[in-house]
Computed example of a mutant assay.
Amino acid sequence: MKYFVASGEERRLTAEARQAMPGSFIELSDGVTHYELTGPEDGDVVVMAGGLTIPLFYWDSLASELNTRGLRTLTCSAYGRGYSDRVRARYDENLFARQLAELTDRLGLTARPLHLVGTSMGALVSMTYAAQYRSSVSTLTVVGPAGLAKPRPTSPDRLLRNDRLAGLIARRRGLQILQGHLGHNVRDPELGAELTEMVLDAFRFEGSLYAVFDTLQHLPVSGRDDLFRQTGALGIPTLLLWGDEDDVTPLVHFDTARALLKPQQHHVIPQCGHMAPFERPSDVADQIVSFVAARAERLDS
């Protein structure tokens, strides 16, 4: 898709603009990444990979819960999201996996294996990272993953395959489509409004809608059974979590995910929508901490 700037994207992510922004920034090979590294310095490191639109602030409550429980956390905004660069590149899972690999390396976090958490589209990125950097992953937590719906020759899919039409739709109706998508992510209307405000704040910056729609073109979020199967064969201790009222990646795919990933543990979070780390951070933290602790005990025994 040809790069474009949509209506309403009136700001640019410059070094000067970033001076007033919270968090830290680092220049990687594809662009500047916005990140936060928090928690006890001697704690095991949990690296989080987010979904299609979410910035690193999405993880704040979960990171705080994990930090309190003794784990160190690394969160970042994927390229094109939050305050990370809008790059003129192919937005696919290899780009995002490379971003995580370079970030953890530059921050000196690769001396011991990491605990990787991926939600929604970020689950696909996490699985790609795990396959490419198997020795650097101690555990994998997959939350409400995308990828298990069956591909359908629907009109939106055909439009995305056509660069010209995809660009036209993205420029004219992209923000409306995005707002509709965000409305289905969480159960609680107040949390939904908070999430929408968080995401749309970053969509004031040039290239934001381009990044989302180029991702939809080049990172398939359906028909990814082979990636799940490949991940299950890696032998990485895996935890599968899912909200019971997930309307984006419905619970109907839970059994398929279990069969393909072969997780050591799995859990359905009650009264929870698509974004469990945002909606139910304490419950998600409980699951991750016990899973990581069990892995550490096996290594020590």
Score class of each variant (00 low, 15 high):
13 L>W: 10
16 E>R: 15
18 R>I: 04
19 Q>N: 08
24 S>V: 00
25 F>C: 03
35 Y>Q: 10
37 L>E: 09
38 T>A: 15
39 G>A: 04
42 D>L: 12
47 V>E: 08
47 V>I: 04
48 M>N: 05
49 A>H: 07
49 A>I: 10
49 A>Y: 02
51 G>V: 06
57 F>S: 14
62 L>M: 09
67 N>V: 01
68 T>H: 10
70 G>H: 02
71 L>G: 06
73 T>R: 02
74 L>D: 07
80 G>E: 09
85 D>Y: 00
87 V>T: 12
88 R>C: 05
91 Y>H: 14
92 D>C: 09
92 D>G: 08
97 A>F: 10
100 L>C: 02
104 T>H: 03
110 T>N: 15
110 T>F: 03
117 V>Q: 14
119 T>S: 14
119 T>M: 14
122 G>H: 08
124 L>P: 04
125 V>C: 04
128 T>L: 07
131 A>M: 08
133 Y>K: 12
136 S>D: 09
136 S>F: 00
138 S>H: 11
139 T>W: 06
145 P>Q: 05
150 K>I: 08
161 R>M: 12
174 G>N: 01
174 G>Q: 03
175 L>Q: 08
175 L>G: 00
180 G>M: 04
188 D>F: 13
189 P>E: 12
190 E>M: 11
192 G>A: 11
194 E>K: 15
195 L>I: 14
196 T>N: 09
199 V>E: 03
202 A>L: 00
207 G>A: 14
208 S>H: 11
214 D>T: 09
217 Q>T: 07
218 H>A: 02
219 L>F: 15
220 P>Y: 02
221 V>G: 04
224 R>S: 09
224 R>G: 05
227 L>G: 03
228 F>Q: 04
229 R>M: 02
231 T>V: 01
241 L>Q: 06
242 W>G: 04
243 G>E: 13
246 D>W: 12
263 P>V: 03
264 Q>S: 11
265 Q>W: 08
265 Q>N: 12
266 H>E: 15
267 H>Y: 14
273 G>V: 10
278 F>L: 14
279 E>K: 04
286 D>P: 05
289 V>K: 01
293 A>M: 02
